[in-house]
Computed example of a mutant assay.
Amino acid sequence: MSLVYGLLLGLGFLLIWQACWSEPVKRKQARKHRIESLLLHAGLHKVTVGGFVSATVICFLVVAVIVFVMTLSPLIALIFGTFGGTLPLLVVRWRAAKRAVALREQWPDVVDHLRSAIRAGLSLPEALIQLGTQGPEPLRPAFVDFGLDYRATSRFDEAIERLRHRLADPVADKIIAALMITRDVGGSDLGEMLGTLGGFLRDSARTRGELEARQSWTVNAARLAVAAPWVILLLMSTQRQAVEAYSTLSGAMVLLAGVAISFICYRVMLGIGSLPSEERILK
């Protein structure tokens, strides 16, 4: 127990020391931008960075309190509270990955709709506005907002830039970049360009889907291997003898070493098993 109090005291001194030094503004802005970008990728446009941080803190406190009531061990409660604090991040990343897979199948249809509308004689802004009613269902709200922006300002560049920000997708960046270049340069081969782009997007989605299907079981098995020891620890912590064993100095060192090893192994597993993510060409 004295070790736990010592760790908490050291953590308090560390927080006080960090409060005496101002963090560079650029680092804060970069961190905030990463969180905002992740929320946009997950389709959570109405969730603010402050709301995400609040959810993280609440999950940490709730899980820590529940585990402490179950085990009466501050160290075990702190460890599982930390795990609980990562739940919002894991959920947002899961939603972002799921949304990326869903949108990957929809973008070729978007390109086909644009190509058909332009061949029918519609202008590029009108073709984009039409996607708000005739495009793929998950993407319609973004194109409806584009129509409202364009009708309010009649400025295509500003409206399509806001559309790109709402979509927050690498494939959307490629389509919008191609449309902007074609609009600026001019030419009559927009339909041919969209046809080529649609074929490329379908081939890319099919290839990436096959790769993800083959490596998903490996990644899930590795995650289960990392989580299993901690589930066993939580079950063992309902026994008073186990709690007393981990309350000693050697027991606390074993737990902290287990946390460090699990974190390192999990990061290595993600680095080995994950596929390279598509980079956005417009930021």
Results as ranks from 00 to 15, higher is better:
L3W: 12
L7T: 03
L8A: 09
L9E: 08
G10N: 04
G10P: 01
G12R: 00
L15E: 09
P24H: 05
A30C: 10
A30D: 15
K32N: 15
H33G: 13
I35L: 14
S37V: 03
L38R: 08
H41Q: 07
K46Q: 04
F52G: 10
V57Q: 04
A64W: 06
V65L: 08
I66D: 00
V67N: 02
V67P: 00
P74R: 00
L75R: 02
I79Y: 12
F83G: 01
G84F: 05
G85D: 12
L87G: 08
R99A: 11
H113W: 03
A117P: 13
A120N: 09
G121P: 11
L124C: 13
L124P: 06
P125G: 11
P141D: 07
A142Q: 13
D149A: 14
T153Y: 13
A168W: 09
V171D: 05
K174T: 14
R183A: 12
R183D: 10
R183M: 07
G191W: 07
L197A: 04
G199K: 11
S204L: 13
T207S: 15
L211D: 12
L211I: 04
S216I: 04
W217V: 01
V219Q: 12
N220K: 11
R223N: 06
A225V: 07
V226P: 02
I232W: 01
L234F: 15
A242D: 08
S247C: 10
S247G: 14
A252S: 12
A252K: 10
A252L: 02
M253G: 09
L256H: 03
A257G: 10
A257N: 05
C265I: 06
Y266N: 11
R267C: 08
R280Y: 06
I281T: 13
K283A: 06
